[in-house]
Design a protein around this nucleic acid. Structure first.
Lengths: 233, 233
DNA sequence: ATTAATAAATGTACCTTTTACACTTAACAA
DNA sequence: TTGTTAAGTGTAAAAGGTACATTTATTAAT
């Protein structure tokens, strides 16, 4: 084992896979940017940046997300660290990917225009630079696992949402159809949804009741070892 | 966004959480080493080392595992990257943890003596340096999740093992008792175990039949979307 | 030869959860 | 008043999970 000083130092980056849900198009979207510097300038990429000596990896990821979206306190979890020698043709860069879930409606549309960021449907992504495509695949797989165990779906929806919208979201994440009655039965027996006295009336004459996620009762259930897994048809 | 060259470089390390299973003591063990350099020389730590410019993270982890154990082609998966600024008091080091599963019997006892490595029971670990305790906790949690979905337990057992031994292993990982008949029913319906014509006779007069993991039928089932989860009492 | 001791091996009934499936209701517009 | 549209609802059958006690094979001791 060598002394610290004898060892080679590396550039470290973070890249953010930023998921959003488009409630109208019923599609998961990713916030992507046009890369502004060489190599690969002008091509689509994840939001990323180098880790500074004054910040942790988590802080770097938060910073990059904030710079792009103006949002703080976003759902953000480490995904995986990519460390192949040649993954970035510009230099050896070790990059830690982070998964972010945001409510599309929270984003200031102007802001993202300025920074050259755009929401792109997961179904038809443009080609991404380097290994960013692999990062997206892994992050999506993690999201699919995560949502079985934790109600992270609510991070992607507005405060008020209908059961139809919630089901559409689950179908988009699983990329599978779900039986309506079974879905409602299961999600309602979890007792983490509050029915509101208000209806969403854009999409039907009858209207659908809004619900709200109750974070407190969720915490209670988690402590009791509650299992949110939703095995879906 | 700055140019590559303007950004600060960091030391990158990998640390290996090496799990083994002691079939006699029915305990999960970790292979730990006495640290040989400052800071924290002489204290217990995970096996780790710096990432070289000529190797990927995965390669660095394999190399460190090989240097310590002499084993190649070991089950090895990335766990998590630890990037707090002050996690290592010697310098800023970003460390990626890897989870390794090895058969204790595969290890050349001499070799580990030379390198100052020792198996320590997970139940009564010594204090570990830096954030290595946290790394262990996370890796164990990952192992507990992993074993529900993939039969990784077989990585920890010798080629031939009895159902009693397999159950003991699951109990050690889950840190929970499991009903014998239900365990056997479930594990046998998975059809990935081959019963051998041979008995283990050390621990009882009657003797227990040896089984062998059939990797081929496992692959077949995985492709069909088989679910190995074993929800246990 | 018989008996005692020990751990391995085995089956079933009950309960819970999951699945499959089609009609009624509310609201508005014509 | 009627037509249209999407929201909302229940039940029966199947599958899977849980709880639980006795028999069997083998060896050592008498």
């Amino acid at each position: 084992m060598k002394l610290y000083s004898e060892n080679r130092r590396h550039l470290n980056a973070v890249d953010c896979i930023i998921f959003g849900y488009d409630i109208l198009e019923k599609e998961i979207k990713l916030l992507l940017i046009k890369r502004s510097f060489e190599p690969a300038r002008g091509l689509w990429s994840l939001a990323g940046g180098f880790v500074k000596e004054t910040e942790s990896l988590d802080e770097a990821a938060s910073r990059i997300l904030f710079q792009l979206t103006g949002l703080m306190d976003v759902y953000l979890e480490q995904s995986y660290t990519y460390g192949s020698i040649d993954r970035d043709p510009g230099a050896r860069v070790i990059s830690t990917a982070y998964r972010a879930l945001i409510k599309i409606t929270d984003i200031d549309r102007e802001l993202s225009q300025v920074s050259g960021a755009h929401w792109q449907s997961l179904e038809r992504l443009p080609h991404l630079i380097f290994d960013h495509g692999v990062m997206v695949e892994r992050a999506l797989a993690e999201l699919q696992i995560q949502i079985k165990v934790k109600p992270v779906g609510f991070e992607l929806l507005p405060e008020k949402f209908t059961l139809v919208q919630l089901q559409d979201l689950y179908e988009a994440i699983y990329q599978k159809d779900i039986d309506k009655r079974n879905f409602r039965k299961k999600i309602l027996t979890m007792n983490v949804l509050e029915k509101l006295d208000e209806k969403e009336k854009e999409t039907s004459r009858k209207g659908a009741f809004y619900y709200r996620f109750n974070r407190e009762s969720y915490e209670t259930y988690i402590k009791q070892g509650f299992d949110f897994s939703l095995d879906v048809n």
